[in-house]
Each structure stands twice: as structure tokens, then as C-alpha cells.
């Protein structure tokens, strides 16, 4: 009984925290306290968080080096945009559609490729991500390389916030479940995991499908905010950007992925006034972080109430 009661307080506190955070930002947006510029960067930040957390499930927790995340983002973006602009579905349906379409793409790509290991998997996912992009480039229905422009701006702070919370809820709870233990065991030692009776392919595909699905959700949110989607936006460089966030945050840390996504978005925006040396500074900062924190900002640790408790009350 005791533990159950504590858990309820925790959940309530967390919910209250989320509600306060949401309302504060919503209030600043509706009263124009946050200018358009800050709103755009807030949007990028939320989308990057979803992308980084979903890729961290595949790369960080399952240990499968996937370089095709932008491809799944593209599947989600195109699915959602087609659903809203051409087929007149409501936005929620489009978001769900994007989630499932990208998840399906993840399944179709995951089943054959996840039997590969390490470098081979990286190359296969990189190639498949590029295939998605090239296929989109050659479909006239979506205007080929010019992409679809004039997309209505349906992504609001509420959808973004909901997307981030949903992604975190699913990923964190998955990782902490028995499925999560199996997934992590695949990363730690695939042969040992298999000997323990874990169907490694099944868990790899599971993580891959969920990760891909949320990348699709991020793509859908992206498309409905930035007015234009074109295949070129979802090239392998985009996949690398996401990978940089995951590695910077620490492989195997959801908190790390979130912090790195926020950090990189702010860094990119903060360097805008220095156009000439922007990319040099960006690269230097990444190199310095990697030299002094090769395990990433958070390593494989999570920031949690326990961590806070330890900080507050000394060693427990």
C-alpha cells in the first residue's frame, strides 16, 4: 500500500509539472511574449527531441547503428502532408498515420537488415534511407525534387508538447520494462542474450519499429510547421545530425538525448549571428565535448528523481 501511495504522488507531481510547463509556454506564446523566432526554435527543439530520443532507442539502447533515421522522418512527413493537404484528413489522423506509416517502413526495412551487424547494418540503413529519399524524388504525385510547399501550419505547441511527452513516455517505459531489459541485453552481448533464450531479432525489430514510428511523428510535425518538405531535406546529413545528438548526449541515455537535442538546437540558433565561422565553431564544440566526455554528456546515466534526491541529500 505504502509504495502504491508514493507512486501516485509521484505521478501527480509529474503531471502537475508537465501541466505547469505546458501552460507557461502556451501562455507566453498566446500573449506574444515569445517572438516568432523563439517559437520556431522551440519547434525545432521539440522535433529534435523526438528524433534524438527515438534514435537513441535504436542506437543507444539496442546498440544497432542506424543511419537511416531521416528516411523514416521523410516517410512520416510525406504521409502526414499527403493526408492533410490532398486527402483532407484531420491533423490527428495524419499524425497517427505518419506514426504507423514510418513504423511500417521501419518493419519492412528492419526485418531484412537487422540480421546484419555493426558496419554492415550502418551501411544498409544508410542506403535504405537514401532509397526512400530517391524514391520520393521520382514520384510526381509529391512534386519530385521540388517537394510539397504551401503546407498549412497545423503544428502548434500543444501538438509538439504532446508528441514529446508521448515519445518520452513510450521510450522510457519500454526501456524500463522487461522488453527493455531484453533490448539492452542485445546491446551488451548479442550472443549471450541469445543463449539466455532472447529472440534477438524480435527485440531489435521491435526497437527499430518504435524508433522509426516516432521519427515519422517528428517528420509529420516538421512538415506542418516549416511550410515546405522536399526530399533533399531528409538526406543522410539529417540522419547524421540526429546521430550527433544521440552520441553527444550519451549512447543509452534518454535524458542525454533530450539534453543534447536542446543543446544543439540552441547552439545552432546562437551561432546564427556569426555566419562565416558558424560551422567551424559548431564542429569545434562537438570535438571538445567528445574529447572531454567521450561517453557523451550523460554517459548511460539518466537524470531522475533519485539523482535529484542524491544531489539534495548527499549520499543515500
Amino acid at each position: 500500500m505504502q509504495t502504491k501511495k508514493i507512486k501516485w504522488t509521484r505521478i501527480l507531481l509529474e503531471a502537475a509539472f508537465l501541466v505547469v510547463l505546458f501552460s507557461l509556454v502556451q501562455y507566453s506564446i498566446s500573449t506574444h511574449m515569445l517572438s516568432q523566432y523563439y517559437q520556431i526554435n522551440l519547434t525545432s527543439m521539440c522535433i529534435n527531441i523526438i528524433l534524438a530520443v527515438s534514435l537513441s532507442l535504436i542506437n543507444g539502447f539496442t546498440g544497432q547503428l542506424s543511419l537511416g533515421h531521416a528516411g523514416f522522418m521523410a516517410v512520416g512527413a510525406y504521409t502526414a502532408v499527403i493526408m492533410t493537404t490532398k486527402l483532407d484528413y484531420p491533423f490527428l489522423a495524419a499524425l497517427v498515420g505518419a506514426l504507423f506509416a514510418a513504423g511500417l517502413a521501419g518493419f519492412v526495412i528492419g526485418v531484412p537488415t537487422l540480421r546484419l551487424k555493426g558496419d554492415y547494418l550502418a551501411i544498409a540503413t544508410l542506403a535504405l534511407g537514401e532509397i526512400i529519399r530517391v524514391v520520393l524524388q521520382n514520384i510526381d504525385y509529391v512534386n519530385g525534387p521540388a517537394g510539397i510547399s504551401g503546407i498549412p501550419k497545423l503544428t502548434t505547441w500543444a501538438w509538439l508538447f504532446g508528441g514529446v511527452v508521448l515519445t518520452l513516455l513510450v521510450v522510457v517505459n519500454l526501456v524500463n520494462s522487461s522488453y527493455g531489459r531484453a533490448i539492452i541485453s542485445v546491446r551488451e552481448d548479442e550472443i549471450a542474450a541469445e543463449l539466455m533464450g532472447i529472440n534477438t531479432t524480435k527485440y531489435k525489430v521491435l526497437a527499430f519499429v518504435i524508433g522509426a514510428g516516432f521519427a515519422g511523428l517528428a517528420g509529420a510535425l516538421y512538415g506542418h510547421y516549416f511550410y515546405i518538405i522536399k526530399p533533399e531535406t531528409f538526406n543522410f546529413l539529417k540522419s547524421f545530425d540526429i546521430l550527433v545528438m544521440v552520441v553527444l548526449g550519451g549512447l543509452g541515455s534518454t535524458t542525454g538525448a533530450v539534453i543534447a537535442a536542446i543543446f544543439i538546437t540552441i547552439l545552432t540558433a546562437a551561432l546564427q549571428p556569426f555566419p562565416e565561422i558558424r560551422m567551424i565553431i559548431y564542429a569545434l564544440i562537438l570535438i571538445v565535448v567528445m574529447i572531454y566526455r567521450p561517453q557523451g554528456l550523460m554517459g548511460n546515466k539518466e537524470f531522475s528523481r533519485q539523482t535529484l534526491g542524491r544531489i539534495w541529500g548527499g549520499r543515500q
Partner: peptide
Amino acid sequence: KRRIAILIMMVFMFGIIAGCGREA
């Protein structure tokens, strides 16, 4: 202790967000 910590975190977050708002 945990509750106190969470409260403090919320105060911090409030401060950060309020700070952003004033800046804008």
C-alpha cells in the same frame, strides 16, 4: 526530500521560462 527537490526544480523551470518571456 524528493518532493522538495522537485519543487525546487519547478521553481527553476519557472524562472527560466519567465526569463525567456521577459527577454522576448
